[in-house]
Design a binder for these strands. Sequence first.
DNA 1: CAGCATCCAACCGGATACTG
DNA 2: CAGTATCCGGTTGGATGCTG
Lengths: 129, 129
Amino acid sequence: MRGDIEDTPEYCDVEAAMEVLGGRWKLAILKKLLDGTKRFSELKRALPRITQRMLTRQLRELEADGLVTRTVHREVPPRVDYTLTETGRSLDAIANQLDAWGRWYRATRGEQAGAEPAEPGSPQVERSR
Amino acid sequence: MRGDIEDTPEYCDVEAAMEVLGGRWKLAILKKLLDGTKRFSELKRALPRITQRMLTRQLRELEADGLVTRTVHREVPPRVDYTLTETGRSLDAIANQLDAWGRWYRATRGEQAGAEPAEPGSPQVERSR
DNA sequence: CAGCATCCAACCGGATACTG
DNA sequence: CAGTATCCGGTTGGATGCTG
């Protein structure tokens, strides 16, 4: 069973994904935008722990990577809103599974580190194997 | 729809997940370990772009977070191997979907940066192998 | 409202050299 | 083999002030 294809030192595509989605905020922002278009202040309110500075920067990067669209309405007061592109929406399943996993992980770690809870063995996510 | 729950400024669980899985390497390492137990040098070979220092640090963090088990064999030459815990294996589906997404994203971006693919949905996510 | 500018501290990640 | 020690640049993130 030594296929040794498994050990191929090729560039892992997970790395490619993490270069775009890496950092602490990208996926959290994506997740919020899955509900629909949101303006800057709505996102800021939805993510209280991110600073304005970081939110701006992360949104610009997501825009540059083609995951969100930024729309500026020239009115007073100013209004800018952000919408997921098709590419951004393609992360729907992954973002939701990460959300479920995060909740599950926090629960298991919060109660007792290392033991399996009475809950379903996994988050909503289906396990392989 | 004013007081909808969707906008709850609560701590997003995606953030919790990203605190554990964040950074460029965590998920890539996880992905490699999904194939089974690997020793340090095998991981290093499987991920040529990570430095030894980073590999060590990321592995220690994964261990501290209960995702991998570190086993030291007191022999000469030294041997240490790493195995996923149940918690670590619970990320199987997510890691594989991210891998698939990364491959798909690279492909679409490589061909035509900025244009939407005619394809209807997300990348073809391979559920379990 | 939605930002940009600036300063600054802390941490992340990489390169290199050395060790049990 | 599997690390540790040291140095160092870049990024993250916070605070504060200013602008169209």
